[in-house]
Amino acid sequence: MGNVQSKLSGEIYLKEKPLDSYHSNQLATEISVVLTEPIASKNLTVLELIRLGRQPYTNWIGSLSKIDKEKIIRAIEMVGLKELEHKKCYELSDGQFQKVMIARALAQDTSIILLDEPTTHLDLYHKAQILKLLQQIAHETKKTIVFTTHEIELGIQLADKMLVMENDKNSFGAPKQLIDEGKFNTLFPTDTIFFDATSGSFKIKK
């Protein structure tokens, strides 16, 4: 979907238009991404990096208009990076850096933000912080935020809708609904862990 890897089969539609028919620049105003791969240059400052999010809208030399600057300031405020603005990326912690990448995607001002495992390498506190931030952004800006994760329990607590991917079948719905349907019970082999529907979490078998 993020146009990073070519699709295996089928057809992807965005706003009732096939994804392939979008011009690359047009697509850049519809979908922004946060990937797991590190960025090429960690020597960028936070502000420089977030500014790059405006590229699909700027002219050939990349100069920022008033609207561009407003969007950048708005993105920085929303993610809470004001103090870190002039720091270099290699000076940031993993959690801070992930926030910067989210701010960059926000500055790109797309209707959809895709994140590939945004919480890997983070401790539990920062995992929850990042996901909560995403939830807050989604509710405030009415953007569609899609992320992949291995953190099922956090997902159950924070996501509006979940797509549980298994080998042969996928199920989609609100976390509560999926729990009621017992979709999590068979997700993993049941020899070491089992799903506890009342607490919405996995427990280790004693």
Binding site: V33, L35, E37, Q55
Partner: peptide
């Protein structure tokens, strides 16, 4: 190079990110 300056800035993020910013 002057024409490419904007693209070069996008390349600082890596090719996949540059692609997501609409760079050919």
């Amino acid at each position: 190079s002057i024409i490419l300056m904007k693209t070069l800035n996008a390349f600082l993020l890596g090719e996949n990110y540059a692609k997501s910013l609409g760079v050919n």
